Simulated assay, not measured.
Amino acid sequence: MPTDSTEDPAALRDWLRALPKAELHLHIEGTLEPELMFELASRNGIRLPYADAQALRSAYHFADLQSFLDLYYAGAGVLRTQRDFHDLAAAYLARAHADGVVHAEIMFDPQTHTARGVPIETVFAGLASALREARDTLGLTSRLLLSFLRHLPEEDALRTLEQALPLREAYADLWIGIGLDSAEHGNPPEKFARVYARCAELGFRRVAHAGEEGPPEYVRGALETLGVERIDHGVRASEDPALLAELIRRRIPLTVCPLSNLKLGVVDDLRRHNLARLLRAGVMVTLNSDDPAYFGGYVLDNYTASATALDLDRDELATLAANSLQASFLPQADKARLLDRLARAVARP
């Protein structure tokens, strides 16, 4: 079902919006739009070093991952109360719902907040209230992935896990897994072997960032040492043919974020992104937005930009949506129901 080169872009976007899809690589702190940042700063008596939201947005020019992270962590400083975390998540979920997202697996960084004196209970409570609200009012299901910051020592991650575990029962419907994010350079997966082993014992689902700025060896380390079920990013796996073959054979999903990769210089032109090559080679690729407030595109923007830049046809775009549902941590019955819904949406003219 090829895409007609003369097709109206608005018509393609409407078709893509109608496809039920999951978002699997989304940092909730990275959805903090400048307008909301200023609102929360005012609410909490915080002075930002920018004149207004437009001046802040104009600062979003990143040389690399670290330059983005510096601004990202500074921006998160406006998040102080349960209401703040609720409003942050609610705003993202409304945007995701409008993009056709039916399920989201949301990463959050408690260490970013506890280091500022925000109790971990506040973070959980605020996020959970918004997620449950979206489930009940929008029909959008979601789960939480507690992500450890890899630039900090593993002991800090272990302490964070122990702080969070008493909350597990209260949020059993939402908190299902853990992840690993922040700067890859100098922070290989093996650094976090103990905390991942502990999480495996506890029955948590496990993902990790690897192969974005880090080498293919980080992808292999995440698989072999951390025992992850999904690789976040993973685009540099294509540099290692044996690793790529293993990803295909094992059906390991990659949660690829094209606009993020472009904004951070992982690729210099979206037309040269390896997303299409990975997909056509048989890798279980999914499309996601990563930190959309900073990178200028939510999930639907990533679908439409990739379709145009990489000449993806409608069959391939439908496969990306199906991959997102299959790669989720939803129960099989829920996946089957959503895949059937997707098939009906694809069949509509």
Rank of each mutant, 00 (worst) to 15 (best):
M1K: 05
D4V: 12
P9H: 08
A10Q: 09
A10M: 05
L12A: 11
L19N: 14
E23G: 08
E29Y: 09
E29L: 09
T31K: 03
L32F: 10
I46R: 05
R47V: 14
P49V: 02
A55D: 15
Y60D: 10
H61E: 15
A63C: 03
L65G: 10
Q66R: 12
S67K: 06
G75C: 12
G77L: 08
V78I: 04
L93E: 07
A94G: 06
A94K: 14
I106H: 11
P110Y: 07
P110F: 07
Q111N: 12
T114S: 13
P119L: 11
F124N: 03
F124P: 05
F124D: 07
G126N: 07
R132S: 06
E133D: 13
L140T: 03
T141Y: 11
S142V: 04
R143V: 09
L145K: 12
F148Q: 11
F148W: 11
H151M: 13
L158F: 05
E162I: 11
Q163S: 13
P166E: 01
Y171T: 01
A172Q: 09
G177H: 08
G179K: 10
L180K: 07
E184K: 00
G186P: 02
P188G: 07
K191V: 00
A193G: 03
R194I: 00
R194Q: 10
R198A: 11
A200Q: 11
E212W: 05
E212T: 01
E217T: 15
G221N: 04
E224N: 14
E229F: 00
I231K: 07
D232P: 01
A237E: 12
L244E: 11
A245Y: 05
E246P: 06
V256T: 01
L259D: 02
V267Y: 01
L270V: 02
N274W: 02
N274L: 06
L278H: 13
L278A: 10
L279P: 10
R280Y: 08
R280L: 12
A281L: 14
N288K: 02
S289A: 14
G296T: 00
T304W: 11
E316F: 02
A327D: 00
L330V: 06
R337D: 12
L338P: 12
R341K: 15
